[in-house]
Design a protein around this nucleic acid. Structure first.
Lengths: 201, 201
DNA sequence: ACCTGAACACCGTTCAAGT
DNA sequence: ACCTGAACACCGTTCAAGT
């Protein structure tokens, strides 16, 4: 057998990633497998390994696409905001809303762990850094005379905080009882942190 | 074959959980399997199902033990603190330090997802709630005349924030570049949030 | 009652063989 | 060069059979 040649290498990569994204969106990262991907694109197991090094490689590439989509949402959300505070609030809301709408794909970003020794790929860290700088930039606009180290620390605290709110809100295991929305909690975090940060130069 | 009777049901449960904890501590949740557990305690696959409903059940029970250990650390850390703020800081530091020391077991709390329809067990949510109330209690001491809803919201924001800092710091994938320690970032979050929260009644 | 181990349905990965 | 599908080593879960 063999020799179908219906798709180029690049097309095969594309439809594989699309199939993976659909599987993850529908059933979570745990519902993804090489055999399900190839079944849904009409190929057999071996073919996946022509295009991806292994399943981890496929997941990393899928997650890179998710990061790109997330960055797109953040970038448009932050554009043309009247003030740095409004910009930061818009970033947080966009992050929450992406996590809420694309829950399973967003979760896959954090659920996937590389095997023991392996380290993360460069484009991946670059995409993460790019998002992080979005926050940092608007925080610097808010407090122009603050040293860069202060800004970096605050950006990291806020970013991590918003992220934590998403994680715990979307994980029904830890969703602590009192039913407040993600948005409320995030608003409280931002408002109070920024009040403290700005007020204490 | 059969009939060994070297261990009671309860002993079997105990050594299985201990073996699981060792496997997770050494290789992460992904390194845990029913077959590895039984191999390390000298039984065969079938025996596990005398004591646990399935692997998920074993993991949930293991995670409950981790939650108990974490609660113990938090409770002793918070005891006899001179002020509510000191108590809250001690809680945060204890949480960070547990995550840092028991990284893989702590990660397993969040990595494990129940299968599709299944919901979380009651003792589990209760243990989470108990930890959460620790924060809430000391926040209430800090601001006695604030309405309970404010306190609950703040506790959730802070708790989620500290959690997010742990998650992102321990995940090498997302560890944003500038190398600040978890403790520094958490300190920044607490100090600024509390300054904002207390100052704005 | 306790425990085994074969059996089944999955899984990721490799690779000789076919076109 | 492309693709298949058998093969291998794993996995979770069940259950007839043994003591």
């Amino acid at each position: 057998m063999g020799r179908r040649n219906e798709h180029t290498r690049e097309e095969l990569r594309e439809i594989s990633l699309q199939a993976a994204e659909q599987l993850v969106a529908a059933h979570g990262l745990a519902g993804l497998s090489t055999r399900k991907v190839v079944a849904s694109i009409g190929y057999t197991v071996g073919s996946l390994y022509m295009v991806f090094r292994n399943l981890d490689d496929l997941i990393v590439q899928m997650n890179e696409r998710t990061l790109d989509a997330l960055y797109g949402k953040l970038a448009t959300a932050v554009a043309n905001r009247p003030s740095p505070v409004a910009a930061i609030q818009a970033l947080a809301q966009a992050y929450l809303s992406f996590a809420l709408v694309e829950t399973n794909r967003w979760l896959a970003l954090y659920e996937h762990r590389l095997p023991e020794g392996q380290t993360v790929t460069d484009p991946f860290t670059e995409k993460v850094a790019r998002m992080f700088e979005l926050v940092q930039h608007h925080l610097a606009l808010l407090c122009p005379q603050r040293p860069a180290a202060d800004i970096a620390l605050a950006a990291r605290a806020l970013w991590s905080g918003i992220h934590g709110i998403c994680v715990l809100s979307l994980d029904r295991k830890l969703e602590s009882v009192g039913g407040r929305s993600m948005q409320e909690v995030a608003g409280s975090l931002l408002d109070n942190y920024l009040a403290g940060f700005v007020g204490r130069n």
